[in-house]
Each structure stands twice: as C-alpha cells, then as structure tokens.
Design a protein around this nucleic acid. Structure first.
Lengths: 245, 245
DNA sequence: GGGGAGAGATGCCGC
DNA sequence: GCGGCATTTCTCCCC
C-alpha cells in the first residue's frame, strides 16, 4: 500500500503511463452519474490525464475520464481515494481503493499513427477510380466529401447525363444511410432546382438491411453491392490472406 | 525479457488480467486491415480473451481484439511476437515486441455491474411520470420503445386528443434526431391512416442544433427543452452537486 | 468550439 | 443472428 502510493505519485509527477489492478469502488459525476460497487478493476492513467477503468471482461471501459484530467491520490478511511477532476468538461470521478493487486508503469513514447485500409474513404476512392463498379457509363465528378451540397461520397453523371449521388457504407447499410442519401438528394434538387427523376441516389455497400431496402425502393433510390478494398488483397494477391498467421 | 515471457505465459494459463508496456509494432487483419509502426504502447489481456492496445495518449484504444480471442507468445527474430486470433470473427493480430518496459497482472474478480443515471431511458421515464414537462394536458400512453410503429420513446395524446410522439435526446439534438422523429411520425400516420396535422412530433432534449431546429420547424415538428434527470440531483438536492469533490 | 459524419464503432435488447 | 438504436459514444475534419 505504501509502495503503491509512492509509485502512483512518482508516476504522476514524471508523466509516466501507469497501470494498476485494484479492488475499488467507482463514482462518476459528469455527463451522467454512475456508481460501480466494490470489485477488482484495472486502472490506467496516461500522461495526458486520460484515466480508464476496465473490468476483467469485455472490450469497453466501464468508466473513464478524458484528456486533461488531473488526479490526486489521498489517504481515506477505507484505504485510499483517487480523486480525478476535469473542470473544463465539468466531470468528476472518485475511485475508492480498498486493496492493491499490482502496479506497473513507465514513460511510454509513441509518435506513430495507425494506418487503416478498408474504410469508407478507400471505398469511395475505389469507386472514383473504377466507376464501372456502380454501373457502365457512370462518370464521377467529385469524391470530395465537403461540397456545398453536403458531404457526398461520390457524385457524378450517368450515361444519359442525370446527376448521380452515391453514398458508400463499408458494411450493412441501414435506415440511417437511406435517410442520409435522401437528405443529400433533396438538397441537391433544391439547390439546382431539379425535379424528381433528374437526380438519382445510389447506396453502395456490401449489403443492405431488408427494411432499409424497402425504404430505399419506396424513395426511388437504388442499391449497388460493392465491397470495400483491403490493402493486402489489393497489393499482395499472391499470398493467401491468412498466410501470415 | 525472459521474465516477461514467463509472466505472460503464466498469466495466460491462470486466466489473470495482464497489463504490460512494450515497444512494439502492431498488425491487424479482420474487418479492415491496419498497421501501427514501432512505438511504446500499453497492452491489456483479459481472462475472457479480450486484448486492448493503448497509445500513451487519448481515450480510445488504437487496436483491439474482442472476447474469445486466443493468444500465443512466440520468440521471433526481432524479439517476441504475440499472435492473437479469433477464428469465429475472422480476425487476426500480430504484436511484434521489441522492448519490454514493465509488466503487471493478477487474477481480478468482479461481479458488479455499473449503475448509470441520466441516460435517455431515465429521461423518457421522467417524462412519462411528469408529462407536464412536455406541456399541460399531455397524457402519455406508452413509454415502450419497441412498438409496431417503431422504437418510440414516449407516445400519447395532447389536450385536444391529437397523437403526440416524443423523441428524447439526452444531449444536443441534431439532424439525425429530427429524421428519426420524422420516420416515426410518418409510420404512425401511415399505420393509422391519419393525415397531416393529426400527429404531432416533439423533440425533447436539453438543446437542439440550429440547423436541426430549422429542419424541425420546416417539417412542422416542435422542440421542448428538457434536461435528463440525475440521481444525486433527484434524491439529494440539499447537497450541492460538487460537494463530494 | 459547434456541426456533421465515420468508426474495425460497442453494447443492449427484442424478435 | 439480424435489426434498430443509444452511447459519459470517440474521433476526425471543416467552418
């Protein structure tokens, strides 16, 4: 317990990344209020002030405080109390620490940024470069997302020169995707003073939910099955996908 | 390095929650593909197979594998390689470990579940119990979210017996909230064979974005400022909110 | 900082 | 498992 206090305070002072397992109770007051009764959790404190609490199962943290939070470890009746506050976000947390399981931490240095392929952006790029994926004769004009008509993924003309708005989804397209497409088409028609039938709307996604498809059809839009590209599949087709494993 | 291998293998075997800081390179192949070049990160492995990789700043993990993943630590040319695979999800990860900064872990036991107040559900409950928050004479009929008309937060009649559909948002209401409300109202009108003016749509939220408000007005819907309830504010009003801090 | 939209979103509940 | 939706969503980008 004494070693724990020393290590935490030392790490906070030195801007280390800290990780410890403790039996604790967690209260949070901010965007909501929450209470987590006594149990073992993993707590992480990062040099930017981020604090994350993980239960021993599951992907998502059970509690957290964002960047810019300050932390103070105090002695308390039940043991120790880690008080965290972020005044600018109006968020507060109290972790009552009953027992310490382990602690580790050191300075961690990392300037790298993750590179991801297969996202929606890659998909709209692919369609821009290979417009036949939508249909023969499709001529994309723009893949800018931020136009005055809205954040349109791909925008162009079909073979009989009607405007075409393509909304890409990297996975199953749902209601919201259809509503998004509808909003873009409506804005486009209004801005350009065009009538029904002069602007086509297309959802490009690997699949679409049945209800979303009904709504799409009803609104007079179309669906085109397109799968987002992946780097290795694109550049290293000779090697089977799972060879590395 | 040798101690690290022993500790990791021991912890994996004993179903401990493990946390270590390492200099590493991370590759992921699954729903997308990603690459994260050499840097210091915190890695967490939970007894349910969850693996989480955190960079030393920011709230969100940079990489992760979900529950049910199996992990194997192997010696490799550059040092060590942690291979993680989740066959049922078709996801794979490789963490090349170049240097070890620290490691800690132990068995963590936790059966508690977090209790949260101030969510959208609490808000719709509050409106159901105190319908005057919407307007005088409002009579809620249902707060079931899953009706055949959709997932409607609160549904009822106003004082002149028009149907009222209330969509709650616990924070700033945006475009999507208005579209969601619109969808419910349209479905309701269609299902009940009602015409314009017979069904009212109301957004209840602490605030609404200016553009969303324009769209709301244009569609003939209404906005009512309502703030979601919080436990302490509700049951311990005598104590100022921040007293505990 | 607000607004809009994607995310390897995640997680929950209902069918 | 799909579907619809909230989330202390988080993160990014633009205005």
């Amino acid at each position: 317990m004494e070693d724990f206090v020393l290590k935490v305070n030392e790490s906070l002072r030195r801007s280390e990344t800290l990780s410890f397992g403790v039996n604790c109770t967690v209260k949070y007051l901010g965007r909501v209020e929450s209470y987590l009764d006594k149990g073992d959790r993993l707590v992480i404190i990062k040099p930017d002030g981020t604090l994350i609490v993980h239960q021993p199962t599951g992907n998502a943290p059970v509690n957290y405080m964002k960047e810019g939070t300050t932390h103070t470890l105090e002695r308390s009746k039940g043991g120790l109390c880690l008080k965290s506050e972020n005044l600018s976000r109006k968020e507060f947390m109290e972790i009552m620490i009953h027992k310490v399981r382990f602690i580790g931490g050191s300075q961690l240095l990392d300037d790298e940024r993750i590179v991801v392929s297969g996202s929606e952006k890659d998909m709209s790029d692919m369609i821009y470069e290979t417009p036949e994926l939508i249909e023969a004769g499709f001529k994309p004009l723009s893949r800018e997302e931020h136009t005055k008509f809205g954040f349109i993924d791909v925008f162009g003309h079909d073979k009989v020169n009607r405007l075409v708005i393509v909304e890409c989804k990297r996975q199953l397209a749902d209601f919201k995707a259809v509503e998004q497409l509808s909003r873009y088409v409506e804005r486009m028609k209004r801005t350009k003073g065009l009538k029904d039938g002069k602007v086509r709307g297309i959802i490009a996604a690997p699949a679409i939910s049945s209800n979303a498809k009904d709504l799409l059809m009803e609104m007079g839009f179309e669906f085109k099955a397109v799968t987002p590209p992946k780097y290795y599949e694109k550049f290293d087709k000779r090697q089977a996908r799972l060879d590395a494993f």
